[in-house]
Simulated assay, not measured.
Amino acid sequence: MPTVAIISQKGGAGKTTLALHLAAAAQDAGRVSLVIDTDPQATASQWAAWRKDQPPEVIDSPPPRLAAKIKQAHEQGAEFIVIDTPPHADSAARAAVEAADLVLIPCRPSAFDLSAIQTTAKLVQLLRRPAFVVFTAGPPNAPRVYEEAGELVEGFGTPPCPHQMPDRAAYRHASAEGRTVMELEPNGKAADEIRQLYSWTCLQVDVSTPRHKGRVAA
């Protein structure tokens, strides 16, 4: 079953928000999903505590234990694993990329953020993992902004994902309550964007339609 790594050497890119929502979308779709939190700040783990351990499951792991944790999760029935990583941590990013079937690089569509992802782009190219840039926290209705940003990251050798996670208040409100945007506003724009992003991600890792729901054993 697929493992998706969310990496970016720049802070504030929306890694944890992307990781949690991808895993939640997989759970909503009937897959047993898991988030592995490698960030010492443990933001994903805190979110899980706020929601009183409702799925998706979140566990922590130091980078050297990541491969073993993934193997154990598969043995316990995990069907979709998302790795959340800290910024400015080469060892954690490398371990996540090595363990992943697909790498997603969240990035704000601004000049400084776009320039900062070149280090991440070089890492995924060095390790020969399929990777895409997911634009986050940009304006909701600015196709030209995303088009120009996409052209730039193409030049780095990391194509843009065709789906974005624009800046929407629903993410802030949901996170503060230990929820997802799909739970907060099931028919909202943010929820629809996450579902589209999840469906696209499944196509990249060749995931078939699941047949049942469940969660990973503790």
Rank of each mutant, 00 (worst) to 15 (best):
S45W: 02
I194H: 03
A116F: 12
V133H: 14
T17K: 04
P55V: 01
P62Y: 08
I7N: 09
D84F: 05
V124K: 03
S115W: 15
A174R: 10
W47R: 05
F135A: 10
R51F: 09
P159F: 02
D192F: 01
G12I: 13
E148G: 01
A48T: 07
C107F: 02
S33E: 10
S175C: 03
P139W: 07
G150Y: 07
V82P: 02
V58C: 12
G30Q: 10
T120H: 12
A137D: 05
F156S: 12
H88N: 09
N141R: 13
S91P: 06
T3Y: 08
S208M: 06
H88M: 06
G138Y: 05
V124N: 04
P143I: 06
L184R: 06
R172T: 13
D37L: 08
E147S: 15
T120R: 10
D39W: 11
H88V: 08
E57W: 01
A137L: 15
Q72L: 13
T180K: 13
Q76S: 10
L22R: 00
I81N: 00
Q72P: 00
R129A: 14
F80Y: 07
P166I: 00
Q204H: 00
R108H: 03
I7G: 09
R179C: 03
I59R: 06
K69Q: 14
A23F: 10
D167M: 15
L123E: 05
Q76N: 11
V103M: 03
A116I: 08
S61R: 03
L127R: 08
P64V: 09
D90S: 08
P166A: 00
K71H: 13
A116E: 12
T43L: 09
P159Y: 05
L66W: 03
T120P: 09
G12P: 09
Q204E: 11
M1H: 14
E75N: 05
K122E: 15
Q164T: 01
Q196F: 01
I117Y: 01
T209V: 15
A116C: 13
A121D: 12
V216M: 08
I83D: 04
V124W: 03
K69M: 11
A169F: 06
R211M: 08
A78C: 07
